[in-house]
Structure formats: C-alpha cells, structure tokens
C-alpha cells in the first residue's frame, strides 16, 4: 500500500483505475494517426500502423522472423548458459575462499568496470566475426552479474544461520545444501536474472557490432540502412516482446523456487 496516497497532482481521479493506463498510449496512437491523416510531414519515416502490420505479416509468413529469432535466441541461450555456469563457479569460489577473494577479487572488481561493449572489438579480433565471437561476448555479458551476485549472496549469509548449522553438527555437504545455498539463493537468482537481461542486451549489441550472419538485430540494422521504418518498428516490438518473455519466465521461476521468502521478488 502506498502510504502517501493523498497526493493526486490534480489529475482526474474519476476515471476507473483499470482504464487510466490506456489514456497515454491511446493519445500517442491518436497523434500517430493524425500525423498521417493530416499529412503533417511528408517524411517517408512516418509509416502507418497498416504498413507496420503488413511488414509483420510479411516477416512472419516468409519465415524471416523465425529464422532471425531462432538465430538470436539460440546464441543468447548458449552464451547465457556458458556465462552463467562459469559465473556461478567463479562467484562461489570467491565466496567460499577468503584467500581467493583477496587474490582475485580486486582484479575482478576492476575488470568488471570496463563497459561491456568495449570488449566487442577485442573479441572480434580474437574470435572473428562469426557465431563464436558473439557467443563469447554473450557469455561475458552474463558472467559478470552472475559471478558478482553469487559471490555477494554467499558472503552475506547471516552468521546466525551458520551458527545454527554448527549447533546441529551438520557435515560439510549438509551445511552447503541445507544452509548456505538456500540462504544465498535469492541473490544468486538476482544474478541469473540480471545475466539473462544482459545477455539479451548483448545479443542485440553483438549483432549490431559484428555485422555477419542473421539475427533480429541484423534485421533492424538492415531496416535502418534502407530507411525501412516499418521494419525497424516491427523489430523493436519483437525485441521488446522477447525481453518481456525472458523476464517473465525468470520471474515465474524465481517466485516458484523462492516461495519460502513469502514475498514475490517480482514485486520489488
């Protein structure tokens, strides 16, 4: 509940709650429509809803959408899987070993400050322009958040829980599986979730920057180069939808697995 519910900013509060969210999008659509209807501009960048729709139909029926999406998603998932696994192991190693943390941690924290996309040109030199370079880059994108959150999750397991484990004489394996990992799991999930998001972002970036092969990003770049606004808008919608879906899946998994927390992460 919002404790400050008394502020209205003078907006019409009479409209039913469920309808309020539609006002702005509808206004924007109306504006779009009016711009075409009254020909406010003759720029060919101003495409109609119909054109975008036609483009969507064409892309879908010709199989271009499927081909592009498949290529992008495949890379995304492979890259994420590699990056997440390495990140989990690395983060766990750092989390469990103070010595390792002291030795490798500072380097890790420094390297992670390098803006992700600055790696792309280097990777392109080391791995070429093909799929292997893209997957390597995606792995890197997923690696950092997963490693960081795994490390922090393990490090911030409350001392009380560790003491409980000591009191009940848990052996090393029980200590790990019954206490430490569950306690660290929310943070680890945050890391995986972030990794998924970053990997998808990096998928697009890789396709923009390493222009070879197929993918949804390449489709959009094609659209831009040929001034096909309808294709660009369609691409954006697809990118948004994929992102939304990945996010949604992660949210559902997270809520299911972390139900003991009594609060859905997705709410925060």
């Amino acid at each position: 509940m919002n404790a400050l519910a008394s502020f209205t900013l003078g907006l019409p509060a009479r409209l039913p709650k469920a309808l309020r969210g539609w006002v702005l999008p509808l206004l924007l659509l109306l504006l779009w429509w009016a711009a075409i209807r009254f020909s406010w501009t003759d720029s060919k960048l101003l495409v109609s809803v119909g054109q975008v729709w036609d483009r969507a139909v064409e892309q879908t029926t010709s199989g271009a959408l499927r081909e592009g999406l498949q290529a992008s998603l495949w890379r995304d998932l492979v890259g994420f899987a590699i990056g997440a696994c390495v990140g989990l192991l690395f983060g766990a190693a750092l989390g469990f070993s103070r010595l390792l943390e002291n030795m490798v941690g500072p380097t890790f924290h420094t390297v992670k400050q390098i803006s992700l996309f600055a790696w792309v040109p280097l990777i392109s030199v080391w791995f070429g322009l093909g799929d292997s370079a893209k997957v390597a880059f995606l792995s890197l994108a997923a690696f950092f958040p997963v490693a960081l959150n795994t490390f922090e999750g393990i490090r911030s397991v409350p001392r009380e829980f560790i003491e409980v484990a000591q009191v009940f004489n848990l052996n090393r394996r029980q200590w790990l599986t019954k206490v430490v990992l569950p306690a660290a799991s929310p943070s680890i999930f945050t890391g995986l979730h972030l990794g998924l998001i970053y990997a998808w972002l990096a998928t697009l970036g890789a396709e923009y920057l390493l222009v070879a092969g197929k993918g949804i990003g390449n489709t959009m770049i094609d659209g831009r180069e040929n001034f096909w606004m309808d294709l660009v808008v369609f691409g954006m919608i697809v990118v948004g939808a994929v992102g939304f879906t990945l996010n949604w899946i992660a949210g559902v998994v997270e809520t299911r697995l972390l139900a003991w927390r009594g609060r859905a992460v997705a709410q925060y």
């Binding site: 900013l9 702005l24 992102g243």
Partner: peptide
Amino acid sequence: LSPVFKDYVYPLFRAVSQVPVLGWLPL
C-alpha cells in the same frame, strides 16, 4: 507520491522500458 499519476503513466513507462536501449537505437 501520486497513485493517480502512476495509474496514468506507469503502464506506458513499463512498455517503453521493456525495449532495451539498443532496441531504440535504430529507430
């Protein structure tokens, strides 16, 4: 501060933020 303002703006804001920066770039 204003749930009413939120009701009007938030859904559009969410939709816009679903598309990553790189998705907006070509447009």
